[in-house]
Design a protein around this nucleic acid. Structure first.
Length: 575
RNA sequence: CGGUGAUUGGCGCAGCUUGGUAGCGCACUUGGUUUGGGUCCAAGGGGUCGCAGGUUCAAAUCCUGCAUCACCGACCA
């Protein structure tokens, strides 16, 4: 490709609304342009990278035995009503009507469509297991699109769905997908980790996320510093502190704490660390039946810990989704407002986090505005309570695997695999005849890769102050030819032309910068775009039949005999 | 969904307080100059000042409403 025939569209300045590095660089390097909030047009360089990622994903899926299909982006509402997600999903599901007043959605994912397809096509156990995938645009009307294509509303995703009659078969495919994903991210050249994950709204049991490690990642991941344990922080179990709880040494005392409401204020007033103070959160209790009156539950945490809403929701006593009680609701039962609450003489059922339950002589609200209690002790001052894991793990906690301590890092979720079970197949009655000739509901797995998000994640991990540094596998071009003053020098033009033809004929993706630009402009543009291998053709070196090679990542340069360029590039690309 | 802020040429911004001929840098076009790291000089083209309404002799500027976009938050006890 010659730049004169290409749409390079690089920019010196960054549009003001770009926040993260990948977003800025994708705009500046001419990969994307914003059309509306969370929706982007891909320019030629962007498409090239996107297609490469897509192709690697496709090859590894095929290798792992999955079969490609393509389903519509627009889906009829009936399927979503059948699965129950029409009511369950909120505004994230974009709905609209066609000219016949029929309801449709823009597919945020394709469980319903694939389950509908499979229940029609698959009738016998002999046809199982089956793993179908597609690479298709999705639309999720995100609450808050941000970071360019990293959290866009419209994005490209590979999604696969597998169908089985037994857990063993599902596990086999799940394992195959796990290793296919490792192959994908290895080939992409990214620093990634598979981590244990919560199954969230999609449902199911076993689940792993694949994260590209980057400081700008939206997710926190907990790693053991000695084993290979890794889990999303939402999922990581907070173990009870080691050893027995210290014995009480202090008397229960009420102290006036006028105006002190937050843990920080109370800690300052009482001259105690936040870890010696408990905080009490009031949330909705789970209802026994739909028409039962709403009751409340009190959750108790150490002052320096955060509630993990996912863990709380999973408790049978707690309403799901989690709802915090309003101040009026709290006052009606507790007789005091938020900021003065505590477990002593608490009229609500108490659920205490493991770490909070390990405290002795701690402080808490007195359930009377403007007062706190000190010297509080479990079992002496509070008798009726239950202990559970309620909090997010923090750096330095004991690892749940039993080995080492936890380290917290940030990651970008680029892949997610689930064992779904029969959630969709049951709701949509997708079954086959088994060996005994009896109807049996299939069990399912689903496996996603965020193709467009990978592009952004790769940049987050591979850039410097001059621009993008593409891994060879996904670079828009592998090699760029940069001639010095080609428009004045026939020798340069001829030598560059020859190299261009040689490399192109060898199947290498070459960009030939034939613009009538000054050298500095070409260098700057090609570094911004991130092409991994640069060949500079200049008069001086040409006298010795040499050209200069420059590696974008290392910055190292060396002189090459002009006849050796092809062999050298092949070796660089490990072909 | 709540809070804050922005909207002036393709991009980045000034002008608005105190109403009176719409400006700067980059980019673009033409000519010259320069040529191994975003040269320099000159001459040009390009703007319904987000939209609608109001105040005024006069509105980018003041007032009202709307739209779009961005950032922050969604632990608060």
């Amino acid at each position: 490709m010659r730049t004169s025939q290409y749409l390079l569209s690089t920019m010196k300045e960054t549009p003001a609304d770009a926040e993260v590095i990948s977003h800025k660089l994708m705009l500046r390097a001419g990969m994307i342009r914003r059309l509306a909030s969370g929706m982007y047009t891909y320019l030629p360089s962007g498409v090239r990278v996107l297609r490469k990622v897509e192709q690697i994903v496709r090859e590894e899926m095929n290798k792992a035995g999955a079969i490609e299909v393509l389903m519509p982006l627009v889906q009829p509402a009936e399927l979503w009503q059948e699965s129950g997600r029409w009511e369950k999903m909120d505004a994230e599901l974009l709905r609209f009507v066609d000219r016949h007043q029929r309801d449709f959605v823009l597919g945020p994912t394709h469980e319903e469509v694939i389950t509908d397809l499979v229940r029609r096509e698959i009738t016998s156990y002999k046809q199982l297991p089956l793993n179908l995938y597609q690479i298709q645009t999705k639309f999720r009307d995100e609450r808050r699109p941000r970071f360019g294509v990293m959290r866009a509303r419209e994005f490209l995703m590979k999604d696969a769905y597998s169908f089985h009659l037994s857990q063993e078969s599902l596990q086999q495919t799940y394992d195959a997908m796990y290793s296919a994903y490792c192959n994908i991210f290895n080939r992409l050249g990214l620093d990634y980790r598979p981590v244990l994950a919560d199954t969230g709204a999609i449902g199911g049991s076993v689940s792993h996320e694949f994260h590209v490690l980057a400081a700008s990642g939206e997710d926190a991941i907990a790693f053991s510093d000695t084993s290979d344990y890794a889990a999303n922080i939402e999922m990581a179990e907070a173990k009870a502190p080691a050893g027995p709880r210290p014995a009480p040494t202090q008397q229960l005392t009420q102290v006036a704490t006028p105006g002190a409401k937050t843990v920080a204020e109370v800690a300052a007033l009482l001259q105690q660390p936040a870890s010696q103070i408990s905080k009490t959160l009031i949330v909705y209790a789970a209802k026994a039946s739909d028409d039962a009156p709403q009751t409340l539950v009190a959750l108790v945490l150490r002052g320096d810990h955060e509630l993990n809403e996912i863990k709380a929701e999973k408790l049978p006593q707690v309403a799901s989704p989690l709802v915090f009680a309003s101040e009026e609701e709290i006052r009606a039962v507790m007789g005091a407002g938020p900021g003065s609450l505590g477990p002593v003489k608490c009229p609500l059922p108490l659920i205490v986090d493991r770490s909070a339950a390990h405290l002795a002589d701690f402080s808490c609200g007195a359930n009377q505005d403007g007062f706190h209690l000190t010297g509080v002790n479990w079992d002496r001052d509070v008798t009726d309570y239950q202990v559970a894991d309620l909090r997010n793990v923090v750096e330095g906690d004991a690892s749940p695997c039993g080995f080492g301590k936890l380290v917290i890092k940030r990651g970008i979720e680029v892949g997610h695999i689930f064992q779904l079970g029969d959630k969709y197949s049951q709701a949509m009655k997708a079954g086959v005849l088994n060996e005994e000739g009896k109807h049996q509901i299939m069990t399912m797995g689903c496996y996603g890769v965020g193709v467009s998000r990978i592009v952004a994640a790769a940049i987050e991990q591979n850039h410097d102050e001059r621009g993008i540094i593409w891994p060879d596998a996904i670079a828009p071009f592998q090699v760029v030819l940069i001639p010095m003053n080609m428009h004045k020098s026939v020798r340069i033009a001829e030598a560059t032309e020859l190299l261009y033809q040689q490399l192109t004929a060898a199947g290498i993706e070459v960009l030939f910068d034939d613009r009538k630009e000054r050298p500095g402009v070409m260098f700057a543009d090609m570094e911004l775009v991130g092409i991994p291998h640069h060949i500079v053709i200049g008069e001086r070196n040409l006298d010795n039949r040499q050209v200069e090679y420059k590696n974008r990542r290392s910055g190292a340069t060396e002189l090459l005999a002009i006849d050796e360029v092809l062999a050298f590039v092949n070796q660089q690309l490990k072909r």
